[in-house]
Design a binder for these strands. Structure first.
Length: 264
DNA sequence: TCTATTTGACCACT
DNA sequence: AGTGGTCAAATAGA
């Protein structure tokens, strides 16, 4: 899965380059080359996703009493990542950085004593890609409304940048199990891959948990359709990738605090 | 003095 | 054995 996400975000970076080619009015040859790279990469990622989803669907069908799961965690995670990445891209292009994120999912899973030194295999996990601030401190991702304490850093094999490990500041006081890992992408140092593990059981924020709509760079209605259009342009047939058409899938809900709840 | 960060070492998993 | 995740002592900063 991480490999697919890596491919998708590499593709997004290629789209950025393509956009630059267009604005720089480069030759049709270079445009064609750029387009080819994009379509190859996304096509490949799409194929892998299809295989992945097919396997999952097959697995669900083999369950004795399949529950009505409208959208799998995997799908949801994927969509969040894709939309979040696009959102960050759009925000940066508009010169606005929005550290908006709210993807806590489900009940927290605490640790049993003694605390394991390795994460559990099935521990809940959410990965988002966050654009770094272009000004100020670029070494840390934008504020995500929670306070974190760094407890480790590791050089990761094959990665140019080290991975930083954070846990919730309230871990001891409120037994909050939330953790996150932050790593820069090799292909785009301005983008962080942030992996969240376990939900916050504390509900303390460094800033207001719901940013005012006055801060929104784009209206979410416009953005939502833009994202869909862009994703469709990128993936061709969205139905084969993500269930935009799912009745239970509300992509606006992914962006809490961006005016998605209140506007009509 | 307290809290956060750094960093080498330890440990679990593959 | 190699790698990633965590611990914990040392250190820095408020």
């Amino acid at each position: 899965m991480e490999e697919i996400m890596s491919m998708i975000f590499s593709g997004i970076n290629l789209v950025k380059e393509l956009e630059f080619c267009i604005s720089a009015q480069e030759s049709p040859e270079s445009l064609s080359t750029s387009l080819g790279s994009v379509s190859t990469l996304f096509g490949d990622a799409n194929e892998r996703l299809k295989i992945l989803l097919a396997r999952r669907n097959a697995y669900v069908l083999t369950q004795p009493e399949p529950k009505p799961v409208p959208m799998s965690d995997l799908d949801q995670m994927l969509m969040q990542q894709i939309e979040y990445g696009l959102m960050q891209d759009y925000s940066l292009r508009d010169g606005v950085m929005q550290g908006v994120r709210n993807i806590d999912s489900g009940p927290s899973c605490g640790f049993s004593t003694p605390r394991p030194r390795r994460r559990k295999k099935n521990e809940e996990e959410e990965t988002v890609f966050v654009a770094a601030a272009r000004m100020g401190n670029r070494d840390t991702p934008p504020d995500d409304n929670h306070t974190w304490r760094k407890y480790g850093q590791k050089d990761i094999l094959g990665s140019k940048f080290p991975r930083a490990y954070y846990r919730c500041t309230h871990e001891k006081l409120y037994k909050c199990p939330a953790k996150k890992q932050v790593q820069r992408l090799d292909e785009d140092p301005y983008t962080f891959c942030v992996t969240y593990r376990s939900s916050h059981t504390c509900h303390f924020f460094t800033t207001s948990p719901i940013p005012s709509t006055a801060n929104t760079a784009t209206t979410d209605g416009h953005y939502g359709s833009t994202v869909v259009n862009m994703a469709e342009a990128l993936f061709g047939n969205l139905d084969s990738v993500v269930p935009f058409g799912e009745p239970y899938f509300n992509y606006r809900s992914l962006f809490h605090g961006r005016g998605g709840d209140g506007d009509t």
